[in-house]
Design a protein around this nucleic acid. Structure first.
Length: 424
DNA sequence: TGACGTCAAGATCCG
DNA sequence: CGGATCTTGACGTCA
């Protein structure tokens, strides 16, 4: 089983993708953006390898306007070596990647211009995976499309268009149920006719359920039969409902107990699980560390990433966690993450926030300039007057971490917004 | 015609 | 000027 995350990595230096608006999309500018984005992708892949994450979705934004303004640019020639090097790392690590054209790639549209653009878009995505030199188990995930008042007809239009796709696309194509139009039952019907594997998405099935009396595992079993030799392991999408947003909205983070309960239903099944969650790699690592026993040092590394976020919310939980990880004794992953989740659900306490910030400042104590010291003390003094001040204090510390290249801090979750709940 | 979702670019505002 | 915050862009469908 592999567990992974989609598109971008949180708290991974050098991993950001760049883009531009269409009016600035000159050939040379696009080519330089592509070069930058491939460097970022390589940094993400390196991070994945170091952290034992073996499933990843490459962002469609890797090549800005990949099926439009950049479609005819010679990026795969200009960056052939870089692409090959990245592909080699992926394959060498046994990593599985995918891509996922979004809701605006609609193959079954009655508007043939829209459908043609969808074909081009699929071709672009396949070109990336081909450029990386990866096999057909590295998939392209697509939704069935629109309904246009007649679902049956829209489904057969999908089938017809599917027949016409080039092999490079077809061999990678998999279909996913969506949260509005096509239920998992609809998708299984169409996909079996086209001999396409099916990705089951649990949250889409919650907002757009197929029929009563069926649970996740029932559908996952049905999807299993659609995965053939050469497709690789069966893949599913797992996500949780956001506590306050509208139905179908992804949660900020995966709740570890809920996830483990879900996994408990899957015994005897061999699946790859793509998480769809705002905090991306952060939740992926949590889930990976909890489903099977790994090195104790993995937990220590995680604790260093979370520690300041915990400290600024609860010094009691901070002490408990420090105690828990003090000795290399057993493998308390589940307990550790549950406690961390508990801490992160609490508001930041101003007094604790000061302690956490001072702890971080400790990294710069011996190198900061007089102006930097003065600025830090000033921001620290402001802390009691509200949330905006905590934000600028953290931004200030993050800039120092970048300037003085403190890797430990740059990979700390303390600075990133999915951890940044309100100040009490 | 606007909402939907996603992310970063671009624009604007502030001290 | 740098930094923080708000708005726009790019896509297609559907109410």
């Amino acid at each position: 089983m592999k567990i992974g995350y989609a598109c971008l990595a949180v708290a991974v230096p050098g991993s950001a993708l760049k883009s531009c608006t269409l009016k600035n999309a000159s050939k040379e500018h696009l080519l330089s953006l592509i070069g930058h984005n491939l460097d970022s992708l390589e940094n993400i892949i390196d991070y994945n390898i170091q952290n034992g994450i073996a499933l990843f979705r490459i962002s469609s934004g890797l090549i800005p306007f990949g099926s439009g303004a950049a479609a005819d640019l010679p990026w795969q020639d200009r960056y052939a070596e870089k692409l090959a090097a990245i592909g080699k790392k992926i394959a060498g690590a046994g990593m599985r990647v995918s891509m996922h054209p979004g809701q605006y790639t609609v193959l079954n549209s009655p508007d043939t211009a829209v459908a043609e653009r969808a074909v081009k878009d699929l071709a672009y995505h396949a070109k990336v995976l081909d450029g990386l030199g990866l096999g057909s188990e590295h998939k392209l995930v697509l939704h069935l499309g629109g309904v246009y008042g007649d679902k049956k007809q829209a489904q057969s239009r999908f089938l017809a268009r599917c027949q016409e796709l080039e092999v490079a696309v077809r061999k990678r194509l998999v279909l996913e149920n969506d949260g509005v139009s096509y239920t998992i039952e609809d998708v299984l019907e169409t996909a079996s006719q086209a001999a396409i594997p099916v990705v089951y998405d649990n949250l889409h099935n919650a907002t757009n359920p197929a029929k009563a009396g069926m649970i996740d595992v029932d559908w996952i079993r049905q999807c299993a039969a659609t995965w053939k030799k050469g497709d690789g392991r069966q893949k599913i999408h797992y996500s949780e409902q956001h506590h306050s947003k509208k139905p179908g909205a992804h949660s900020d983070s995966i709740n570890i107990e809920r996830f483990l309960e879900f996994c408990g239903q899957l015994t005897g099944m061999d699946l790859d699980i793509m998480l769809e969650v705002k905090d991306k790699n952060i939740s992926a690592l949590k889930c990976i560390n909890c489903v099977s026993r790994r090195e104790f040092s993995r937990l220590e590394t995680e604790w260093t990433r979370y520690s300041y976020s915990v400290l600024e919310r609860s010094s009691d939980i901070y002490d408990s966690l420090r105690q828990m990880l003090r000795v290399n004794n057993g493998y308390p992953a589940r307990e550790m993450y549950s406690l961390i989740e508990e801490a992160l659900s609490l508001p930041v306490v101003a007094g604790n926030a000061v302690h956490a910030a001072q702890r971080v400042w400790g990294y710069f104590e011996d190198k900061a300039s007089a102006a930097e010291r003065k600025r830090f003390r000033q921001l620290l003094g402001n802390l009691h007057s509200g949330e905006a001040c905590l934000k600028s204090l953290k931004n200030n510390l993050l800039r120092l971490a970048a300037k003085y290249r403190v890797d430990n801090l740059l990979s700390s979750y303390y600075f990133y917004k999915w951890q940044a709940a309100g100040l009490e």
